[in-house]
Amino acid sequence: MARRVVILPCSGVGKVYGTIAREAAYMTIEQLRPDKTLTVCLPRLVVEDDDDARRIVRENPCIVINGCPSKCAEFAAETAGGKIVGELNVTSVLRENRDLKPSQMAIRELDPKGRRLAEIVAEKVSREVDRILGSEGG
């Protein structure tokens, strides 16, 4: 299998930013860079008996998408020995796009602002994917 970039969102279920991280990951994996990316369930990286998941993040470059400054996705990837080569934070992207503040209650389904914010995050992640694979000659 050609090398792919592993996209790891935090998917935090308590805040809308977790949903934005998750949707941005899916936009990247399924629409923007489908042949160059994949994801692994984040909890699989932290349980101790899942060598397959750990191997994927150790053998492929990873981009983490953190919903908030707690950086939990990064922690999970690091715990598994993942090769983190890119990191995005949804709240940082929101600071660059203050007019896109989503409803804090739109966790189950994003509102239009949240969805647009997810698109912007996905576009940034996709550019990172190109940079990473380009620098590897992939």
């Binding site: 998917s11 935090g12 279920v13 308590g14 805040k15 977790g18 707690s70 922690f75 189950r108």
Partner: peptide
């Protein structure tokens, strides 16, 4: 994820809470 949110928002809003699993793990 959706099932949990249905419980928190609609079915038992005053009797349930959730935590971010990644934050718990961290």
């Amino acid at each position: 994820r959706i099932a949990a949110r249905i419980v928190l928002e609609e079915l038992r809003p005053t009797q349930t809470m959730t935590i971010c699993l990644p934050l718990y793990l961290a």
